[in-house]
Design a protein around this nucleic acid. Structure first.
Lengths: 166, 166
DNA sequence: CTTGGAATGTCAACATAGCTGACGTATCTT
DNA sequence: AAGATACGTCAGCTATGTTGACATTCCAAG
């Protein structure tokens, strides 16, 4: 899929200095990337963990706690604390599985959808501005490099959903 | 996959779905980005905060506590806790400023350089692999988008050093 | 049916790394 | 001499991660 160094000859873009710039770019850009949602969340005593949970429940309605655990890469105890506050505040609801009653299927309530919308609107606005400023071919490169930077396991989750719905 | 109109007229690359993919790519890639250093750090009871401090002291030897505060965007109490352990473990040393004796100029010791090297080697290896797989033009796009994603203040710090030395 | 292992989810206790607020000290500047 | 600046520290709070113990449910073997 990814183009393999089509220029071929020059490897100047692999200098340590270039790599260092890439590393710092990730650091600073990630701060910008999370800044807008963080501002919204802090007004409601939530944190990034809540954001992540809401995001992935929205992406895959009916996903189980176990699925979420795998995607988020945290312990179930840690996730549980976040989920509990989301239940208590009426943003997420859990339905016991029909086939397997051990499972809890997670759904956003209307209120949950509203928060998700607010958060992703803010984040999308920044992403859109960056995309627009950079242009389509830069965006393609951006995605290609990020994809290559993931662990294999994470890349799998990034590419296909496969689980959760249905 | 997505057909891109490099002419720039089409704004198909700005769809919500594309933006969502970009958002998730940042999330998953950042995990990969930090995974290797995290493994090294955890063996020595350090965290990402130590990594960041060591990185920027290495980048700008002689930088002051105040500069570091600005770059890292944390409170001095938080930074201080980290710096103290780095002093105690002999990785960083602070020299009182010659012109302004209130300032503490920070330098890595040999031991500090060794840790910095280990951390950045791991991180650069992953970045290099990603760069190589993606190719030079993708890398350029990657950097362009990340830069556009930063806050103005962070972009300033990313682009030029200007402070610290001299 | 019963029993026991495996999967799933919850509760309790603790660690780390952020944060705010208040204060102290040394130093520079006016 | 007085105020501003740079740095350090104490005390206490919050968010989010960890491990350990436990409850519930499913499924399969006896």
């Amino acid at each position: 899929m990814a183009e393999q160094n089509t220029g071929g000859e020059s490897l100047l873009f692999l200098t340590d200095e270039n790599l260092r710039k890439g590393i710092e770019a990730m650091f600073f850009a990630y701060r910008g990337f999370t800044a807008d949602p963080d501002r919204i969340l802090e007004d409601m005593d939530y944190g990034r963990a809540h954001h992540r949970a809401v995001h992935f429940i929205n992406r895959s309605p009916g996903t189980t706690v176990g699925n979420l655990l795998t995607i988020l890469g945290v312990t179930k105890q840690s996730l549980n604390r976040v989920l509990r506050t989301l239940f208590d505040d009426g943003l997420v609801e859990a339905r016991v599985g029909k086939q397997d009653k051990r499972e809890r299927h997670l759904y956003l309530t209307d209120k949950g959808h509203a928060l998700e919308r607010a958060l992703s609107d803010a984040q999308r606005a920044r992403m859109r501005a960056a995309y627009r400023a950079a242009g389509p071919s830069a965006v393609q490169g951006f995605r290609t490099v990020l994809e290559a930077m993931m662990d294999a396991e994470q890349r799998r989750q990034y590419q296909g959903l496969k689980e959760g719905s249905t």
